[in-house]
Design a binder for these strands. Structure first.
Lengths: 226, 226
DNA sequence: CTACTGTATGCTGTCGACAGAACACAAGAC
DNA sequence: GTCTTGTGTTCTGTCGACAGCATACAGTAG
């Protein structure tokens, strides 16, 4: 009974998936206005499901809804990036502590596999794999055994990925980040929450520093729609 | 130019405010199904803005949207409550650490004032003030200087308040919680993040223990719509 | 040349209505 | 008496259309 043959995915969900991929794929400028009628006609759906899709993306922080004025692709000010990084640290530290305490052998195996996939992708595609690093973090959330934490952490990571991707900060740090990921995995394997927390904090501080450095010269307080 | 004379609040926002107040006020049963047509007609609006209001409430975790089956008032399983408490601890600890580092004298004054208001409300209304304790925590978020953290923390607190209110766990712990709040404020005044974190963890552990104790006998894995 | 004003266009917020799916209940088979 | 089946109803998801506000531009006064 768990198989749903008649699983018609609502247009709103499909539209949200498409738009999310477009935004993360860089098809829109940061802060760009998205016209409801234009999107709905181009997607071949009505405005009702499109609006719901945009609301969903707003919850994920990928777009900003300004009442009566329209929808804009998220454009994070340096202050907002700092806010996101602070929250990410808190959630990621919690996640890896829980993961170190609770991870089963199967989940550790998945984590290891995720890192191997990342490693091979790093070699083959070079910098063209912006999804994989977050995948490892997602597995950590999975191992933490907290569904809601996983959702919120994934949302934060997605928003940060949006900034990092645009600023080109993803590629350069991948090699070193991979080493840090290995250290994180080792701490989880040892079921050592304190070591895991410390290594995660270092990892995130390095990552955050890198993002802010890349961001500082490029963005000076741009055209925020608020 | 900051004054908006023509600030017509959209129906969707008004509906969300009304429904949020109803849910938190206990006018609906946990897990109860909410009919769109019934609500829209009773509120005197169409289904379009009502649906947006329900989507907004779903983002806040107050209702569950089940695709194709309807909207249900949130009903948290013990596991979900545990998940919420874990996230709350991470966010609240981050918030009070930031608040201890960054709080200005004015913000500390607001915190003190919030506690005084809570104290007087505790004496006059007894247990009939479920909003005030969270108000103090909201001020901490405000003092942390992180807008997004404030929003997320408020959302988590609101969800927990929904559980606590229904289980009647709010009233009994207010006296002791107030003492703990005073200790939190003192740590912020001293700008001592470490002490603030430790006291916050103790405070949240006490609160969480109390919630789980109240919850354990009442709920055994009820009719979750998933 | 600059600043104000009126118009024109496009947009969002909202509405009412329809199609298909999900649920509830009644009728019949074993 | 229990399980299956058929039917009716209600609901959600989606659609197209309208009203009011916001923005952009042209026109005019100074």
């Amino acid at each position: 009974m768990t198989e749903r043959v008649q699983q018609t995915v609502p247009y709103s969900v499909q539209a949200a998936d498409i738009l999310r991929a477009r935004i993360l794929g860089g098809e829109y400028e940061l802060g760009q206005r998205l016209s409801e009628v234009e999107l709905s006609t181009s997607l071949g759906i009505s405005r009702s499901p499109l609006r719901e899709a945009l609301r969903a993306l707003a919850n994920e922080g990928l777009v900003d809804l300004v009442s009566g004025r329209g929808v804009f692709v998220a454009d994070f000010s340096p202050r907002e990036v700092r806010e996101l990084l602070e929250i990410r640290e808190a959630l990621d530290v919690l996640a890896i502590r829980l993961a170190a305490q609770r991870a089963t052998d199967e989940q550790i195996e998945v984590l290891r596999h995720s890192l191997e996939g990342l490693s091979s992708a790093l070699r083959s595609h070079g910098s063209q794999a912006p999804d994989w690093p977050s995948d490892f973090h997602l597995c950590i959330y999975e191992a933490a055994g907290n569904q809601r934490l996983k959702e919120q952490g994934w949302s934060i990571h997605t928003q940060i990925r949006l900034v990092r991707f645009r600023s080109g900060a993803a590629a350069e740090r991948m090699e070193r980040a991979h080493q840090e990921h290995l250290a994180l995995l080792a701490a989880i394997e040892d079921h050592d929450p304190d070591a895991a927390e410390q290594r995660m904090r270092e990892h995130l501080i390095n990552s955050g520093k890198h993002i802010l450095e890349q961001l500082a010269p490029a963005q000076g307080g741009g055209s925020s729609p608020r």
